[in-house]
Design a protein around this nucleic acid. Structure first.
Length: 267
DNA sequence: ACCCAGGCATTGG
DNA sequence: CCAATGCATGGG
């Protein structure tokens, strides 16, 4: 793992909103299924300790823990961000290595609290995923595609969201081609799918593709954070938040994550 | 019993 | 083009 890296800060996300059965915090380590096998990731001397791993598994773990972010180039551009970046030194935004997991996860989180979203998501994972030891493999599109809409509403999705998830599971997206497109083209492609709006597409860019300029201006928590840090608490509109984000180029993605963490962990 | 929470699509002006 | 509305669950 490139330095700097703070394991506790990077994995905070998997503890603070409750349990995530597919990225399970268990007895001080992070458990995830990679290639059908459960991997336990622990902190060790500021690095990451994992069992002997094949190259593909290693690549997934590195992606999960945000290895591709260029923290050394991330220089805070203003007095607001300077102490935040210093205090959160080594924080790498955790990513969703699997695009289907990212999109379904975003759909669960639309409109409702993250606690509620994780409750629904975990029931979905239990119902359609496969358990290894402690953790579950996040459901694959193939396992979800044949489901009936009622099986999805049964785990807590609204009827509308159940349709979105089923459409997505049956969509047969070319994620390799998608990943080769520039940011705006990725968004344009994704937004054509029902249930995927700009917010979801922005988070896909940010937390799956790790695009440096991704900036989920529609995100309520990010709007609160930006409003408190940069507008003296006056709630900024989505367009205002989007415009303000441009000053952080080319580190909008990292900035969004740092502001979010700083805002929910004051002091 | 409300109200809000890391949206989105649909409908009506 | 913008405003209003319904949706699911969980915590306050």
């Amino acid at each position: 793992m490139p330095q700097p890296f703070d394991f506790e800060l990077t994995t905070e996300r998997f503890r603070v909103f409750g349990t995530d059965l597919a990225n399970l915090w268990h007895e001080g380590g992070l458990h995830r299924i990679v290639g059908g096998r459960e991997v336990r990731i622990e902190s060790s001397l500021g690095g990451v300790d994992v069992e002997p791993l094949d190259d593909e598994t290693r690549a997934v773990i590195l992606k999960l823990l945000g290895a591709e972010f260029d923290l050394n180039a991330f220089a805070p551009p203003d007095p607001v961000l300077t102490p935040i970046v210093e205090q959160l030194r080594g924080f790498r935004p955790a990513l969703a290595p699997d695009p289907f997991e990212m999109l379904v996860g975003a759909i669960t989180a639309q409109q409702i609290s993250l606690r509620a979203a994780f409750a629904v998501r975990n029931r979905f994972v239990e119902r359609f995923g496969v358990r290894a030891e402690q953790a579950y493999a996040f459901p694959t599109p193939e396992r979800v595609a044949p489901a009936a809409e009622e099986e999805l509403t049964a785990v807590g999705f609204s009827r509308r969201k159940a349709e979105y998830v089923l459409t997505l599971a049956r969509a047969d997206l070319d994620h390799t081609a998608l990943a080769a497109l520039p940011d705006e083209d990725v968004k344009a492609e994704l937004i054509q799918l029902p249930g995927i709006g700009e917010w979801t597409a922005d988070w896909f860019l940010a937390r799956h593709l790790a695009r440096p300029h991704a900036w989920p201006a529609g995100d309520l928590a990010l709007r609160y954070a930006v409003s408190d840090f940069y507008a003296e608490g006056r709630m900024l509109t989505i367009p205002e938040t989007r415009e303000l984000g441009t000053r952080f180029a080319p580190f909008e993605n990292l900035t969004a994550h740092y502001l979010l963490v700083a805002h929910r962990s004051p002091g």
